[in-house]
Design a protein around this nucleic acid. Structure first.
Length: 588
DNA sequence: AGTCACATAAACAGTT
DNA sequence: AAACTGTTTATGTGAC
């Protein structure tokens, strides 16, 4: 039968293993390393790409000027390195362009149907939008540059940006890919795009008495601003000054670029809006931001290796009341910072490295983990500890721990085979987990001292944090030995039954910030009364079955500064938050 | 390169 | 007998 059990594990292993490994690779490479690698090869960085996407393109006799719609930065002329974009960026940009073209075509269809028509003054909209990204004077100057130089198109052609033909080596990444296709997509009826504005306008205004290019007695042709007393004079001006020639053609194409860029921006903003609405559950069906299927299975199906097929559901990002709504956030708040590896393996000390509190994370993102099939970025040990500490009496049976895992994490509802073994393994392996025999059977408790001893946090990545934390406690002048003694003292204090049993036990416990996660914040959360109670006095009364002979020796280490520290530890509640960040290590 | 922490797999034994 | 529980060992990986 053991063989059967083993084979069953093996049978389930491949999928789990693959899943884990793939997730691991996703998180490791796709998260930090992957993105960073992509930026370091002389290619365009995501930031630059973002700017690219936001750019408004303008043509001048001196080249192509791009005005970033994001920050209004003007990039001119475009660096040659941008011509060397990798295929990745090109493909991405082409996708954007295609999407934009579809949108533009749709817009034109609407226009033909009369749903969206050019209204008087509408022609100024792109200018206004551009002016948001660029000061009006500069923008106007750009237009005048185009308007005032008949050879603008020639200049552009000369520089490799042929407005009439596809130019692969255009200096403008966006323009080169977009402009040549505009006539085809924006004007599917085969009408020459260059002629369209003029013909439409001249025929339109004569009959209606209004003209999109005329308003407030001025010609609204980009860069013109010619005063026209009436429509007739304007028409005259239009036909004479803005007749079909190279200059008007170039100006028209520039305007098309402007519109196109704005539509790209519109597409992006629409996408953002969609994501926001998705996040806020305002729409019944949205594309899922997560790669993995989300598990919205009811808690009724918690325990068992349920359902390979999970109901398709909306992404369920953190929605706890304590979590401020952040539209663009797609995952747990802490994950976003400490681990882009939200779908990565449990392991790794992300929370340690970044001092990520698991309890606060779980408190904030409880719903997220419950519903999203995302592996929590915490170790088994920390999770087990959290589960136990969350229990009313600080003790759980193995099965209850299982239940907690499946109840709290959709991920564990599905990947059943391996993690239960891992939980048992961790319970047995780590001294911090103490098996206690009671009437009902065996329950597991947490030896907080052992847990903190388990692995002193390195905090190598943030020495300043350590310094700040110490200084925050008023220990700014402490030297390393004092700090070590402090931390050590805190452990001993924790180990003291009297201290543990007192109400200050929780705050003392917060001294051990955690390298892990749970340790630091179970109490913190408790202080808010939201999640789990404080350290249980019952804990000290437990009968420890597990033999831990060597540990008491460490606990009896001399604590030279014990008294001093204990005074400082007995801080009012408002100072305990600072204690929380005190490193538990520096023991050795 | 060595060490450590962790995850995973698996064998094994005891208990229910 | 089967399932569950608990212990232990082995191995691989990543971080330091």
């Amino acid at each position: 039968m053991m063989v059967e059990s083993a084979t069953e594990t093996i049978r389930t292993t491949p999928s789990t293993q693959n899943g884990v490994s793939s997730l691991s690779s996703q998180s490791d490479s796709g998260g930090r390393e992957g993105s960073s690698n992509g930026d370091t090869n002389g290619e365009i960085s995501p930031v630059d790409l973002l700017h690219l996407q936001q750019q408004q393109v303008s043509y001048t006799p001196h080249g192509v000027w791009c005005v970033c719609g994001l920050c209004a930065c003007v990039r001119a002329p475009l660096p040659l390195s941008w011509q060397q974009l990798g295929n990745k960026q090109l493909a991405f940009q082409q996708q954007l362009i295609q999407m934009q073209q579809l949108q533009q075509q749709h817009l034109l269809n609407l226009q033909r149907q009369g749903l969206v028509g050019l209204q008087p003054g509408q022609g100024a909209v792109p200018m206004q939008s551009l002016q948001q990204a660029m000061c009006p004077a500069d923008l106007q100057q750009l237009w005048k540059d185009v308007a005032g130089v008949p050879s603008a198109e020639e200049t552009l052609k000369h520089e490799g940006l042929d407005l009439s033909t596809t130019s692969s080596n255009s200096t403008s990444y966006s323009a080169s890919k977009v402009s040549p296709q505009i006539p085809h997509h924006s004007l599917p009826n085969g009408q020459n795009s260059v002629h369209t504005p003029k013909r439409d306008s001249s025929s339109h205004e004569e009959h209606t008495g209004s003209h999109p290019l005329y308003g407030h007695g001025e010609c609204k042709w980009p860069g013109c601003e010619a005063l026209c007393e009436d429509m007739g004079q304007f028409i005259k001006h239009l036909n004479s000054e803005h007749a079909l020639d190279d200059r008007s053609t170039a100006q028209c194409r520039v305007q098309m670029q402007v519109v196109q860029q704005l539509e790209i921006q519109l597409a992006k903003e629409s996408e953002r809006l969609q994501a926001m609405m998705t996040h806020l559950h305002m729409r019944p069906s949205e594309p899922k931001p997560f790669n993995q299927p989300l598990n919205l299975a009811s808690s009724a199906s918690l325990m068992k290796r349920d359902t390979e097929a999970y109901p398709e559901g909306l992404p369920h990002p953190p929605t706890s009341a304590a979590t401020p709504i952040t539209p663009l956030r797609q995952g747990p708040s802490v994950i976003s910072s400490s681990s882009l590896h939200s779908v990565g393996p449990i392991r790794r000390r992300n929370s340690d490295k970044y001092c990520t509190p698991i309890a606060s994370e779980l408190a904030q993102n409880c719903e997220f983990y419950k519903n999203a099939d995302v592996r929590p970025p915490f170790t088994y040990a920390s999770l087990i500890r959290h589960a136990i500490l969350e229990a009313p009496d600080r003790q759980l049976t193995l099965n209850e721990i299982y239940n907690w895992f499946t109840r709290m994490f959709a991920y564990f509802r599905r990947n059943t085979a391996t993690w239960k073994n891992a939980v048992r393994h961790n319970l047995s392996l780590h001294k911090c987990f103490v098996r206690v025999e009671n009437v009902k059977g065996a329950v597991w408790t947490v030896d907080e001292v052992e847990y903190q001893k388990r692995r002193p946090p390195k905090m190598t990545g943030s020495p300043t944090l350590v310094k700040n934390m110490i200084s925050g406690l008023g220990f700014g002048s402490l030297n390393a030995s004092y700090q070590a003694a402090l931390a050590e003292s805190s452990l001993n204090l924790l180990n003291s039954p009297t201290m543990v049993n007192t109400s200050s036990g929780g705050s003392l416990n917060m001294l051990h910030v955690g390298h892990d996660d749970v340790s630091s914040t179970v109490e913190q959360v408790n202080s808010n009364g939201s999640c789990s109670p404080g350290l249980s006095p019952q804990h000290s009364h437990q009968v420890h079955v597990k033999e831990e002979p060597a540990e008491m020796e460490e606990d009896s280490r001399p604590v030279s500064l014990m008294a001093t520290v204990s005074q400082n530890l007995a801080l009012p509640g408002d100072e305990r938050e600072m204690e929380e960040e005190l490193p538990a290590e520096e023991l050795e």
